[in-house]
Design a protein around this nucleic acid. Structure first.
Length: 553
RNA sequence: GCCCCCGUAGCUCAGUGGAUAGAGCACAGGAUUCCUAAUCCUGGUGUCGCAAGUUCGAUCCUUGCCGGGGGCACCA
């Protein structure tokens, strides 16, 4: 509907320009918004005010010219008001709104999708936790945000790939092997000092125990380096499988798991270093190899290869992003924990140095999650191995509630996850409130079906809905496509969560004021079409968040 | 010291270069012979952290300050 107003407005301006009533102007900046108050119409534009300074005419005069022209050509518009300093307020003919019911009926689960993204290739990389331990609650937020963003971008017409980068090379992995080996030796009574930087969680003991069932005592006799290698491989594979299981239980899926080790196998890291040298972007100093990130806006240069000859984490990461660029993505979106924000300028520098447009790279930073149980914070520390895992959260509150809670704040806002609220099956819990709206509609539709009535577009008199509570509800579902494209354009998945709450509220209000199945046969038919459309939109929006739409509760 | 994010109702948080800044919770009262009461309705509160600047217009943009969190590695 908003799109229709914008195109009408553009057409009007063009005609006014041709008639030389106003001079040429830029049409791309036309904005149409939903006004803060119903009294100001269904849509409003501040166009006349923004044009006023450029063409040196009073805004109300410009608005008047637009109003006269547009009112004459509108099948959609009932009337136009000029208000305040020069707002143009549009009032849509009530009957026009009911056409959205036809759209929803025709498009079903595709209602809300668009060609906004024009099929552009986009990659979203998220979670990417090292396979050194189970996913914890912080990863959960990243997973919920990333997966939902992928679904939204896809709905908005982008060609999206979801990728998980596995850091399966380097110190952390060695550390994992050492930790498991120590626990393994412990099992056989060998008192071995546990590595200082080792992983202390109980899952390490479980892995050691599994290993002992396969290998018996044989690893005790191996060289330490070989034993560590065996432990490392066994543990990282097992942990990665567990991560994948957790993600599946969380309704999160990836198109591609990208292993860091393949960068070395395919010589991509060396190739990147060669590229840097060739372009004169790297230099040797104090025995280390540096990358001139300061040429691209970073505050200082960064080390690629350390004095001891080993590479920093940054080096393979550049090679990884080079690989992404070469795969032809027009947008590369990385979802990181907010503690990595200092890493953004150097990654942007790398993207630019690699010859790509730095605007194509977006780092979405996810703020911290803290847990509250019985009003008290739950202490967590990765180092001590005391952290709440994603699996524990899912087991305790369920996948749907967890996903919603992770998405009910803006990404850059810290999140307090209240476990008691999450488990409450009452009106305080927004997830059940929303799902209940869907279940209620299903229940009404089932009752209607028992009486031999199903929603039928052909025979329903939709004109009956162009008023009162019915119209209010229609306006909410009509806004849905704009919400989806808005989320995609600004990379803000949390807006779906807020929209769902708004839609559920609108439906519950409608339910309490109006009966769907009544003695009035014509109204019953029309409202069955209406609630069936509402159900479809609830289901579509819930699907974007990866949350179930239950038929009964 | 430098950098990033946040600061909006009692609490948790949305929101916007524009019109009277919103929701949920909490608190109080009310609604169901009828499609699920996991529901709805009615109540009111704001120095949009502080100050200056840009603007016809700033809670929003810029700068400085205050407060909270995070980051400043030849760790990953």
């Amino acid at each position: 509907m908003k799109e229709k107003i914008i195109s009408l407005l553009k057409q009007t301006i063009e005609e006014l320009v041709q008639a030389e009533r106003i001079p040429e102007c830029n049409m791309d900046t036309i904005t149409v918004t939903t006004p803060p108050n119903k009294e100001f119409g269904d849509f409003a534009s501040n166009l006349a005010m923004t044009m006023a300074s450029k063409i040196k005419k009073p805004p109300r005069e410009i608005a008047k010219a637009i109003k006269e022209k547009m009112e004459a050509m509108g099948d959609i518009i009932e009337r136009i008001d000029i208000a305040g300093p020069g707002f143009i307020n549009f009032y849509i003919k009530p009957v026009m709104w009911t056409s959205v019911l036809n759209d929803i009926h025709d498009q079903k689960e595709l209602y809300g999708t668009s060609s906004f993204g024009r099929g552009k290739k986009v990659q979203v990389e998220f979670v990417s936790a090292n396979p050194t331990g189970p996913l914890h609650i912080g990863h959960g937020r990243g997973a919920a945000v990333g997966d939902t963003l992928v679904r939204i971008l896809s709905a908005a017409g982008f060609d999206v790939e979801a990728e998980y980068y596995i850091n399966d090379v380097g110190n952390q992995m060695n550390n994992l092997g050492l930790s498991v080996l120590s626990r393994y030796r412990e099992l056989f009574g060998n008192e071995i000092s546990f590595p200082e930087q080792g992983y202390k969680g109980d899952y390490i003991k479980d892995l050691a125990s599994d290993l002992s069932k396969i290998h018996g005592e044989s690893l005790l006799k191996e060289d330490t380096s070989k034993a560590v290698e065996i432990c490392r491989q066994f543990a990282s594979r097992a942990i990665l499988e567990e991560i994948k299981d957790d993600l599946q239980d969380f309704n999160v899926s990836f198109d591609h798991f990208f292993s860091e080790s393949t960068l070395y196998e395919n010589n991509e890291v060396d190739a990147m270093l060669g590229y840097m040298k060739e372009k004169g972007l790297s230099y040797e100093d104090e025995g280390a190899l540096w990358f001139k990130t300061s040429n691209f806006g970073d505050e200082k240069d960064r080390v690629l290869r350390k004095q001891d000859g080993t590479l920093t984490y940054f080096a393979p990461d550049i090679a990884y992003h080079k690989d992404k660029i070469e795969r032809g993505f027009t947008q590369i979106i990385d979802i990181w924990g907010a503690d990595h924000h200092g890493y953004v300028p150097r990654m942007k520098a790398a993207i630019e140095a690699l010859g790509a447009d730095k605007e194509c790279f977006h780092a979405l930073l996810i703020q911290l999650v803290s847990l509250i149980r019985q009003g008290k914070p739950v202490q967590m520390s990765t180092r001590s191995g005391e952290f709440i895992t994603l699996k524990e959260i899912i087991d305790e509150v369920g996948k749907d509630v967890a996903r919603y809670f992770f998405l009910m704040r803006r990404c850059d806002s810290q999140l307090v996850f209240d476990l008691d609220l999450a488990k409450k099956k009452s009106d305080e819990n927004p997830v059940y409130y929303i799902q209940y709206a869907h279940a209620r509609i299903c229940s009404i539709l089932a009752n209607a079906a028992e009486q031999g009535m199903t929603p039928d577009m052909e025979t329903a008199a939709l004109g009956l809905l162009a008023d009162g509570e019915d119209l209010e509800l229609i306006k909410v579902i009509a806004a849905y496509p704009d919400v989806v494209t808005g989320c995609a354009a600004d990379l803000e998945p949390h807006r779906i969560a807020f929209y769902l709450l708004e839609l559920a509220t609108a439906f519950h209000r409608f339910y309490n004021k109006s009966r769907v199945i009544s003695d009035d046969g014509r109204m019953t038919k029309a409202r069955l079409v209406l609630i069936s459309a509402v159900r479809q939109v609830l289901a579509n929006a819930l699907a974007l968040m990866g949350i179930d739409a239950p038929e009964s509760m």
